[in-house]
């Protein structure tokens, strides 16, 4: 038992990110409410950001701000954490924000169109508006042509 706990504890940051990611993924798939789907997407993306950030940490490292000087002779002075993942995630956050913005804008238009943000209601409304069953559509098409 203690072995399992040790394994979990030794890499607890990865366990946290995987758990969060699965929560977000579940929300995206299973929730019927469109806003909740977007929240799920946000949790999913944030979990990946946390993975990147925890990846960049170096034990005993300090923030990657230059202390002393740079160059080979100063290399051993200070241990820095890896700044590259931070920069990547800064970009990825911008991307995530734009995705969220587009998603929310779409939800507003869906709400204006169908009067609801519940997937069931929207699906039912679409079925009523446009029967997508091809046989029905075919017969409708034939009927319209013969009327002309």
């Amino acid at each position: 038992m203690s072995g399992v706990i040790d394994i979990v504890y030794a890499e607890y940051n990865y366990w946290i990110y995987v758990t969060l990611m699965m929560i977000g993924f579940y929300a995206m798939i299973a929730k019927k409410n469109l806003i909740k789907k977007v929240i799920g997407a946000n949790i999913f993306q944030t979990a990946i950001f946390l993975f990147y950030i925890s990846l960049s940490d170096v034990k005993g490292g300090t923030a990657p701000i230059l202390v002393g000087g740079h160059g080979a002779e100063h290399a051993a002075d200070v241990i820095y954490t890896n700044p590259v993942p931070h920069c990547l995630i800064l970009t990825a956050i911008v991307v995530a924000v734009s995705t969220t913005a587009v998603a929310l804008a779409l939800i507003i238009r869906i709400y204006n169109e169908y009067g609801s943000i519940e997937e069931d209601v929207i699906l039912a409304a679409r079925r009523k508006l446009q029967p997508e069953f091809s046989e029905h559509a075919r017969q409708k098409g034939v009927a319209e042509v013969s009327r002309q």
Binding site: F51, T99, A103, E113, R126
Partner: peptide, 23 residues
């Protein structure tokens, strides 16, 4: 109406795909 719903579904699928690629 339909276009927006299609776009939203694509957005959810596309976000999953892009997140997997990012991972």
């Amino acid at each position: 109406g339909d276009g927006v719903v299609a776009s939203f579904n694509y957005l959810i699928m596309g976000t999953v795909a892009a997140s997997f690629i990012l991972l």
